[in-house]
Design a protein around this nucleic acid. Structure first.
Lengths: 201, 201
DNA sequence: AACATACTTGAGCAATCACTCAAAAAAACG
DNA sequence: CGTTTTTTTGAGTGATTGCTCAAGTATGTT
């Protein structure tokens, strides 16, 4: 009996991701959102509740996509460390140029850094998601250690944090407009960081 | 004959740094600024021109202070790489707890990441300042190479970018609420990164 | 076709945004 | 003390903020 919704929720979320990723939370107005998602306030608020609700949902979806991308590169590459490096190369050097080249920095990190204090719910959400990614890294590293890719004495939780720090660092650095050649060198240098964690054969 | 200004420009700038560092540019309102700097609109606008003018001046002052801190630690530590590590330890583990522990992330990086696009003047300013810091690193590394601290084949510009990436990474990671123990381990691990660049004796 | 049940629309809400400016106040001179 | 010069004040600018809601519109069922 009811009328079916006109908009595509997933498409709207993708548009929201692109918009918030580029402009951040506080600098994005509802006018921007209405224009970019092609939705009017009534539809927006019945679908997502509030600007913050939409943002959180977009951030969750972004993180899920990112985690998938990382896992796919790990699987395709065979090793965890080489997989993450492959992911970074794909992300920063790939032909995803137009959209991503402008915003190589991680949306979660952007959110963490634009949060206004400890009480800001955005900070809580961002740290929660970072912790989730970190746990994913840890699990993948544990598995790699069992498979003999890593030295048996490696502390996987610790290495996961180093790994995450590297990813946060390069992606932020890439935002400052480095050339492709500089990024390539940087990724090489970072790859060296992980050399000592590998199991010698 | 004229009336002398009541406010202290340097004190006002310090307050602006603290405020913008914590809350970012877009999420900070003029009401916040009036309260925190204890200045009314007229004084603010005669002194700094605009919200953006005040922000840029604060960001410049922040960067100058940060560069001083780094240089001091390099001088006190004897080596460039050990100096930067000492700076990070002082920044992230020192007793600067209350104010800084809440905002370990670099204000310039926060600005870079909260900028809304390539046309955003904030992004230009942030990249310019990062470039300046990078050049400072390069110069210090060149000097260190001449002094025999670094291997003669080290590409100093390249190492400077790696160094900056590490600093950006840890400081951002620290914002996500890591424990002191985790930070300590992370700094140890990062120190290992630079080991291979040192000149053997 | 007529009804019921949504969804979409856009005008409009109070609050806040960055900012202006005329008037009041205060210092340095005579 | 009075004059001059500058700063400080705070009410007020139009525009925009996130958001609401009644009216209009479209769909699926009977």
């Amino acid at each position: 009996m009811p009328r079916t919704a006109q908009y595509d929720r997933q498409a709207a979320l993708q548009a929201a991701i692109a918009l918030f990723w580029r402009r951040g939370y506080y600098a994005t107005s509802l006018k921007d959102i209405e224009r970019e998602l092609d939705m009017r306030p009534g539809s927006l608020y019945s679908a997502f509740g509030s600007k913050q609700g939409l943002f959180v949902e977009a951030l969750d979806a972004y993180t899920a996509t990112m985690a998938d991308d990382v896992q796919n590169h790990i699987a395709a590459s065979g090793g965890v460390l080489s997989g993450v490096m492959a992911y970074l190369r794909w992300l920063l050097l790939g032909q995803k140029c137009p959209a991503l080249a402008a915003t190589p920095a991680c949306m979660v990190v952007k959110t963490l850094l634009e949060s206004t204090g400890d009480e800001d719910p955005l900070r809580g959400k961002a740290t929660e998601l970072l912790r989730r990614v970190e746990l994913g890294f840890t699990a993948a590293l544990e598995q790699a250690k069992s498979a003999g890719e890593l030295r048996p004495d490696v502390d996987c939780e610790r290495l996961a944090r180093l790994l995450q720090t590297q990813v946060m660092g390069v992606r932020s650095f890439a935002q400052s407009g480095a050339s492709e050649r500089q990024l390539k060198q940087l990724l090489e240098d970072i790859e060296q960081v992980f050399l000592s964690y590998r199991q010698a054969h």
